[in-house]
Amino acid sequence: MNILLVHAHPESRSLNGALKEFTVQRLQSAGHLVQVSDLYAMQWKAAVDAEDSTQRLFTTRFDVAIESKHAFKNGFQSVDIAREQEKLLWADAVILQFPLWWYSMPAILKGWIERVYAFGFAYGVGEHSDTHWGDRFGEGTLAGKRAMLIVTAGGWESHYGPRGINGPIHDMLYPIQHGILFYPGFDVMPPYVVYRAGSTDERRFTHICDELGQRLDTLFSADPIAFRPQNKGDYNIPALTLRDDILPGQAGLSIHVADREY
């Protein structure tokens, strides 16, 4: 299978750098083809701006969505954006690997998403009607592919538990897993999270690699998170609210996961 690893850490000798090397070796040893987008090594430009299009539709005012749509549709995207889109289309699975900085992904990775997820590629796809509100949340350009996060966090696991001060880790990663990965169609695997990243010695690193290796070995066989598809009947369209008869009286992020076990 083809796998794209998008890596976002500035130091190759860090824990994240070591996990990147382990992940590539493990996947290749299993016979997979792997491409790596090492964003810091690539000196990836994170900011969306007018330079993302080689031929603007309007020159007096920069409208991000309109220019993104125009550039994607007409082949006017900058070379770096088009190249990353080709990698996404090539891949059967995508792994985003990054440290949890200020409760989210590093800015360089967010910038990769913002620039590569062009209008007409990752959003703005499909019809809008009384029964179908675009190809998204389970449908879209990247449907049929798998995705997974490998995340390191400085805090203890308890800090990210149900009563932890940071909030549950699944709630924290929800905007990434549901909003960035499930939105354009990916089947999203449960994340692999390394807690207390700064306290990793050689013995613990070996244990982490054992756990991560098992997760990588089942990347294409384990069950993904059971996010509810938008257009399969669970949501009122166009309001996009969960039907009243499903989990009545309940709210929060977890209601959008069908099996409620995640």
Rank of each mutant, 00 (worst) to 15 (best):
R61E: 12
S221Q: 09
P175H: 01
L242I: 15
Y103T: 09
H256D: 15
G138K: 03
K73V: 01
I108C: 02
D38V: 00
L19P: 10
R203N: 13
R26A: 13
D38Y: 00
D217T: 11
A147C: 10
G185V: 01
M1A: 13
W156Y: 08
W133N: 14
Y183R: 09
V36A: 08
S78F: 01
A118H: 01
L240D: 02
P248L: 10
A239L: 13
H178L: 00
K87A: 15
T218M: 04
S158H: 10
H178D: 03
P175C: 05
E21N: 07
F98L: 07
F98S: 02
F58C: 05
I165H: 14
L89H: 06
Y117H: 11
L100C: 12
E11K: 12
F205N: 01
L4M: 08
V48T: 15
R13P: 00
Q43I: 02
A118K: 09
P175I: 07
P99N: 13
V24K: 12
D38W: 00
G164W: 01
R228S: 04
V125H: 05
Q214L: 05
E114V: 06
Q250H: 10
Y117E: 09
V79D: 10
H132S: 12
Y160W: 01
W44K: 00
T131C: 05
P248D: 13
P248I: 07
R203A: 15
Y117A: 02
T23M: 02
P10C: 07
A147V: 09
P184E: 06
P184G: 09
G179Q: 08
G138V: 03
K45M: 06
Q97T: 03
D259Y: 03
K145M: 07
E261Y: 04
Q55L: 07
M42W: 00
D244N: 15
Y160C: 00
T59Q: 07
I180G: 00
R13N: 12
L247V: 11
Y174L: 01
A107K: 09
F220V: 05
L242T: 09
A258W: 01
A18I: 01
R260M: 08
T218Y: 02
E84N: 12
H32M: 08
F119P: 00
D245L: 07
M148A: 04
D234G: 02
G198V: 14
R136Y: 02
D63S: 13
A50W: 03
P191I: 14
N166L: 08
Y103V: 09
